[in-house]
C-alpha cells in the first residue's frame, strides 16, 4: 500500500469567519472517502497544522457528498481584520493539508487523480 499525498485523493478549499478557518476536504471519487475519513482525523489534522492553528479543530463528516469539513479555531492570527499574516483570509491554508500522507490500497490506485 503506497503512501499517497492527499492531493491525489481530494481537493480542498478554505473559508474564513473571524479567527476561524474552515477547510473542506472533498474526495475526488466516492470510493476514496473511507480511507480519507479513516486517516485524516481531527487529531491528525490538528497535528499537521501544529503551530498554525492555535485552537480547537472540529471535523464534520458528510459521507454522501464525500466531504470532510474541518473547522479550525484560532487559525487566522486573531482574525482577518487584525491579522499580521500576509494571507489575512487564510486562503493558502487549505493547500497546507494537500501533502498529508494516506495509505491507499492497491485496489483504489486507479481512482486517484493525477497519480502515476
Amino acid at each position: 500500500m503506497p503512501d499517497v499525498e492527499l492531493r491525489h485523493l481530494a481537493h480542498t478549499r478554505s473559508g474564513d469567519k473571524g479567527n476561524t478557518s474552515n477547510i473542506a476536504v472533498i474526495a475526488w471519487h466516492e470510493d476514496l472517502f473511507d480511507v480519507i475519513e479513516a486517516s485524516l482525523t481531527a487529531t491528525a489534522f490538528a497535528g499537521h497544522y501544529d503551530g498554525v492553528v492555535t485552537g480547537k479543530v472540529t471535523r464534520y463528516e458528510v459521507p454522501r457528498l464525500g466531504v470532510l469539513n474541518f473547522v479550525a479555531e484560532g487559525a487566522l492570527g486573531g482574525g482577518v481584520s487584525r491579522s499580521l499574516s500576509l494571507d489575512q483570509y487564510g486562503k493558502t491554508l487549505a493547500a497546507g493539508i494537500l501533502n498529508f500522507k494516506i495509505h491507499v490500497p492497491e485496489t483504489l490506485i486507479d481512482k486517484l487523480r493525477n497519480y502515476s
Partner: peptide, 16 residues
C-alpha cells in the same frame, strides 16, 4: 460537481 462542492462548503462550519 467538484466546483459546486467547494463552494457549498465555503465559509460553512456545521454543514447540517
Amino acid at each position: 460537481r467538484h466546483t459546486v462542492l467547494e463552494q457549498m462548503f465555503y465559509e460553512v462550519h456545521d454543514p447540517a
